[in-house]
């Protein structure tokens, strides 16, 4: 997530607050140009859990994008991509679940156990999104601009080599170049990089709960 994303996010909020739908839509398109594949990949990672067919994956992407727009239009107040990506992940979860339910209704197919049925969320899926958005904004307000996850998480990765690897990776440096820089084999670099990504991933619950 580069500065460009953050700038688009800020512009979106400014256009929205000025009632400029076309401007807000242009910023949203820019954000989705840059982030469609992230959302698509998140859907694909959930596809087997929710037993989504290829066309249902497309539908889940579409629903996640529409809900993302609605949430951004209604309630989004922050300007950091860390929070944006995190809430996007929640929207992807809901979208996959919703598409699975809708597909089940159409075909009589059973939903998976973790999807649940008959709850208030199923009856009105938006309530949960609204509630999560509200909680998120409260956290945004509490933590302000310092809430960017990566900036918070990197110093907390204890292993020096892992920290360097994740920093260089986030800068877009290929594995071979990082391996050369650290004077390790590419095979070793793969292992360090995997551990580094895992270390960063483990920090999310702490950040969300902080």
């Amino acid at each position: 997530m580069g500065l460009r994303d953050e700038e688009l996010l800020r512009r979106f909020v400014a256009c929205r607050d000025a009632g400029d739908a076309d401007g807000a839509r242009r910023c949203w398109v820019g954000l989705i140009d840059a982030n469609h594949d992230r959302i698509r990949a998140m859907v694909d990672l959930r596809a087997s859990r929710y037993r989504l067919s290829p066309t249902e994956r497309d539908d889940a992407v579409q629903l996640a994008l529409v809900n993302l727009w609605k949430n951004m239009v209604r309630t989004f107040k922050g300007s950091t991509m860390g929070e944006w990506v995190l809430s996007t992940r929640q929207l992807v979860d809901f979208a996959c679940r919703q598409v699975q339910r809708d597909a089940a209704k159409r075909s009589g197919r059973q939903t998976s156990l973790d999807a649940g049925t008959g709850d208030s969320e199923a009856a009105n899926p938006d309530w949960k999104l609204d509630e999560l958005s509200w909680q998120k904004h409260r956290r945004d307000e509490e933590r302000g601009e310092a809430s960017d996850f990566v900036a918070w998480a990197l110093p907390q990765v204890d292993d020096e080599r892992q920290r360097v690897v994740i920093e260089r990776t986030l800068d877009g440096v290929p594995a071979e170049d990082i391996a050369q820089e650290l004077d390790v084999t590419v095979a070793n670099l793969y292992k360090i990089r995997e551990r580094a990504v895992k270390s960063i991933g483990r920090l999310w619950p702490r950040w969300e709960g902080s």
Binding site: D37, T55, D58, V61, Q62, A64, K70, R74
Partner: peptide, 22 residues
């Protein structure tokens, strides 16, 4: 990316909604 079905469908839906909810 812009030709992906989910993207195209979402954009069409969003054009129908605009900023009225806000």
């Amino acid at each position: 990316i812009r030709a992906e079905p989910g993207y195209v469908g979402a954009l069409a839906e969003i054009e129908a909604v605009g900023l009225w909810p806000e």
